[in-house]
């Protein structure tokens, strides 16, 4: 162990902390704003369309996002894994990823002129297997069926 190793570790930790925190804040700001914007658009996990939508077109919409965790959070998680308990730093990461994926799906549905997305499903998968059992990057996929009123 030397000065250099310790310095590299501390620099990585600081970079992860400051950039990660900045990114998280601006991402939450964007999520909150977009959620507010599209508040009137309903997303349902129900699988039976309401009877009021008698004759409509249905099409699949999806939104996905791959997020990675910063060095600071990964270090925190590694320590947390020794003592156990809530991994608070990862909760917000996954929360952000899910809401982002849902928003992307919602935006796609709105672009297609849909009135509702039915049967919403959200799936989370860790896409970097191996690498020291650490959750490196996580993909969240949100998909559902956009119900678009038929023209004519």
């Amino acid at each position: 162990m030397s000065w250099i190793e310790i310095a590299v570790f501390l620099v990585l930790l600081a970079l992860g902390y400051f950039f990660g925190r900045y990114a998280e804040r601006s991402h939450y700001r964007s999520i909150l704003w977009r959620e507010q914007e599209s508040l009137g658009f309903p997303l349902l996990t129900l699988r039976t369309p309401p009877s009021s939508l008698a004759r409509c077109d249905a099409s699949l919409v999806a939104g996905n996002v791959v997020v990675s965790v910063d060095y600071f959070k990964r270090f925190l998680a590694a320590l947390r894994a020794l003592v156990g308990g809530r991994l608070k730093s990862y909760e917000s990461l996954l929360d952000r990823a899910r809401r982002e994926a849902v928003l992307r799906m919602k935006e796609q549905a709105m672009d297609r002129g849909a009135v509702v997305v039915m049967g919403v499903r959200i799936e989370t998968a860790s896409i970097s297997k191996g690498k020291g059992q650490a959750i490196g990057s996580i993909e969240v996929l949100a998909y559902g069926t956009a119900i678009v009123p038929s023209r004519g």
């Binding site: 990585l12 970079l15 992860g16 950039f19 990660g20 990114a23 998280e24 999806a62 996905n64 996002v65 791959v66 997020v67 990675s68 965790v69 910063d70 060095y71 600071f72 959070k73 990964r74 990461l93 982002e100 896409i127 970097s128 490196g136 990057s137 993909e139 996929l141």
Partner: peptide, 23 residues
């Protein structure tokens, strides 16, 4: 790029697109 993002955190746009294309 992903290696860098593993320090800073954030979205891996390349992977997002790759997985969307693959799907």
């Amino acid at each position: 790029m992903a290696g860098l993002k593993n320090i800073f955190g954030g979205e891996l746009r390349g992977y997002t697109e790759l997985l969307a294309e693959a799907r």
